[in-house]
Each structure stands twice: as structure tokens, then as C-alpha cells.
Design a protein around this nucleic acid. Structure first.
Lengths: 107, 107
DNA sequence: ATTTTATATTGCAATATTACGATAATATTA
DNA sequence: TAATATTATCGTAATATTGCAATATAAAAT
């Protein structure tokens, strides 16, 4: 039907899937990489760098924000997006656990 | 428009996004976790375990197969799905590089 | 050869995602 | 205050994803 039956799965499974969904678009990968390269974290040239329209970039940023990966000032001019280090390491850990816990000794 | 403008991004960015997309559904996380727990890699009870219909499971398995994460026998009865260890470690490495290369010293 | 068992494919409906133009909102600058 | 610059939101169109019923396919068992 197009609706993910999230209730059938564990919280951990859903959270990992949701994080993966945010990374599941090259624009969002590119945005995260670009923000991380900025010294001063003023990211108002994101539109020019990525090459998508301003509303689209805004939408992607919102997806990234929703899982808590960005922190900083979000209002007005000269807004300042930065990677939320704690959240970032949290996700990194989740992916790491997932990848290392998979047992591959078969076949 | 609903089409990802993949041509605007690097191969690395697209590949990571594509891998993330496969992990972006709790059913596929659950499927991978279940397969990895099986000793003998005979996975014909996946439908009962996951709780989605057989066609839906088949579809999800196909998504996982498409990025080379599964190997084994794929035809007929008693088919045998297993994690492709090499591919798995390749993806693990890609995610690891992505997570560690992000510079967070800002704000 | 027919039945049984297990997976794949097709077709369709419902929902989600991606993208952008138009416009609104907010803050800075002149 | 008016003009400018920057981001957010709304509305809409196109495409993708998710899920299942129905059906097809393939191998094994009877």
C-alpha cells in the first residue's frame, strides 16, 4: 500500500532505517560533506554548490535536521548549520553495531 | 518531479546513497539480521518471521540482492540466501569512511 | 504424472519522495 | 522606511516505494 509497516519492527530497526533514509539521497550526502568542510559554518551558498533549487535544498536540510544531525542557528540571515557531533557519533555507532553484529560465516 | 538528480553528484556519493536506501526500511534491516543469525542459511521461513506477505518479502530480498549483499542459490526450492561477506565489508568500509571523514569541529 | 512446497512475477492501489515556481517570512542594509 | 538578501512554506507535478492478491514458475515428493 505504500505505507511502511513500522509497528512490526523493533525500535532499533526502525531508528536505523530512518537514519539510513536520511542518507539515502546523494544531495543529502553532499550537503553533509559540504557543511563539514566549512570552517565558519555559514552555509548560505549551499544552493550554488549543490546545484538544486533553494526550496529543494531547504527540504533536504529539513530531513537532516529532523533526525537531529544539525545544530546551530536556524533563523534569519546568516544562519549557521553545523553537524551535531553527539548525534553524529550516535548514528555512527548504530551503523557500526549493525555492520559488525551481522554474522557472515555461512555458505 | 520525484526523480533524483543523480548526475549532479559523484559516484561515491551516489553509491553510498544507494546502499543507504537499501537499509532505509526496517523490514530489510530485519531480513539481514535474520539471515545472519541462521546457521544453515536456509531462509524459507522469512515470511513467517518478518510478518509481511511472501511477494513483499520477495521484493525486499530483491532490493538487497541488487546491491550484491546476498549470495547463494537463488532458484527452485530450498534456496539459500547468505550475506556476501566481501560486499558487506565493502559497504561497512564506505559508511565508516563517510562517518569518520566528516569534520565536526565547528560551532 | 500429479500434487505439494517455495519463490518469483505481474498488476494494481495507496502513500512517500523529489523537485521547483510562487510566495511568505525574517533580518540586514541603504 | 524601503530595498535587498536569505531561508521557509505552500501548492503542485512527476516519479518512487510499499504492500498484497493473483498468478506463474520450479523443484521435490508422492
Amino acid at each position: 500500500m505504500g505505507v511502511s509497516k513500522t509497528h512490526m519492527f523493533s525500535l532499533t530497526q526502525n531508528e536505523l532505517a530512518q537514519a539510513a533514509k536520511v542518507l539515502a539521497h546523494p544531495a543529502r550526502i553532499a550537503i553533509l560533506e559540504y557543511i563539514s568542510r566549512q570552517e565558519n559554518c555559514i552555509c548560505n551558498d549551499l544552493v550554488d554548490v549543490i546545484g538544486l533549487s533553494q526550496p529543494t535544498i531547504s527540504q533536504h536540510l529539513n530531513e537532516i535536521k529532523k533526525i537531529g544531525l544539525l545544530k546551530g542557528t536556524f533563523e534569519g540571515k546568516n544562519l549557521c548549520y553545523c553537524i551535531n557531533q553527539e548525534r553524529w557519533e550516535e548514528l555512527q555507532h548504530s551503523f557500526h553495531v549493525f555492520f559488525t553484529n551481522i554474522n557472515q560465516n555461512c555458505c
